[in-house]
């Protein structure tokens, strides 16, 4: 079952990872010409004219965009977070529910395997693909950025693995939601909404101290990019919170799926 799950989900994994790699390859190809034209410094100067709150939401207050590594730390990671988040959320909402929408669950239910085993195999495959996506992108970017003057390898790798925290949390929430319905379309919309609302709350929370509490409602705050950039370390609390949330949501999903009517 585990091998089959790996195979079934491979195609989507390749497509989503491909999108990320193409996006980053395109930006890196563009950068040398932008830098040589001397426009980047002007751009950095121009950025200073923007309100600090806006710059903060793209981390531009703590990093410039005049180098590819600078771009990764600012806009680049917004894309990584969003794309890995969307992929994880779709995976979470689909991986169990697909058996029901395709009605293959009637078959899977009658073979000698427990429902817990079904969920465990599917979760394990999802975690492998989510982590693999983040790592493959990390290696790809590392190779392309290694010639960059301001490239800080340690900071880069710490930064690169942070999407794992937000993505695993989004995956487990979507997985849990999927155990409450039989319709893929319904949970698909909710999961995508979850990603964008989560991102929105995270962005808003950085704009003012008054609404800072909103970050506690956002999975993206677990990625904690700002602190990774400034402190060059991952806050262990974020790892712990991710582990706790992932475990809680997955365990509730297992318990609920165990009692679910499957047809």
């Amino acid at each position: 079952m585990f091998k089959r799950e790996l195979k079934v989900n491979l195609k989507n994994f390749i497509i989503w990872t491909g999108i990320l790699l193409i996006l980053f390859a395109a930006v890196f190809l563009m950068y040398p010409s932008l830098i040589s034209s001397g426009q980047m410094d002007e751009l950095d100067d121009m950025m200073e004219m923007f309100p600090p709150e806006l710059l903060k939401s793209f981390n531009m207050d703590i990093s410039g965009i005049s180098t590819p590594f600078g771009w990764i730390k600012t806009e680049g990671f917004v894309f990584v977070l969003l794309i890995t988040g969307v992929y994880s959320s779709i995976l979470g909402s689909n991986i169990l529910l697909k058996e029901e929408s395709d009605k293959t669950i009637e078959y899977l239910n009658c073979v000698p395997v427990t429902r817990k085993q079904i969920v465990a195999d599917k979760v394990l495959v999802s975690v492998i693909y989510i982590v693999a996506m983040v790592l493959i992108l990390g290696v790809f970017n590392c190779v392309l950025l290694s010639g960059d003057d301001d490239f800080d390898k340690k900071q880069f790798w710490l930064l690169s693995i942070t999407p794992i925290f937000s993505s695993l949390t989004l995956f487990s929430i979507s997985l849990l939601i999927s155990t409450f319905t039989h319709k893929t379309k319904k949970v698909f919309g909710v999961s995508l909404g979850l990603v964008f609302v989560s991102y929105f709350l995270n962005t808003i929370s950085e704009l003012s101290d008054k609404v800072e509490f909103l970050k506690y409602l956002s999975a993206f705050s677990l990625a904690d990019i700002r602190n990774v950039i400034t402190d060059r370390r991952i806050n262990p609390v974020m790892i712990l919170v991710t582990a706790v949330l992932f475990t809680i949501f997955t365990v509730i999903a297992v318990i609920h799926y165990d009692r679910k009517e499957l047809v």
Partner: peptide, 20 residues
């Protein structure tokens, strides 16, 4: 529902066969 020992001795054919 999770008794695999019992599941093992059962062969089930649903009215509508849905496979991969």
């Amino acid at each position: 529902r999770d008794d695999t020992e019992i599941k093992r001795i059962i062969g089930y054919l649903p009215s509508e066969v849905n496979l991969y």
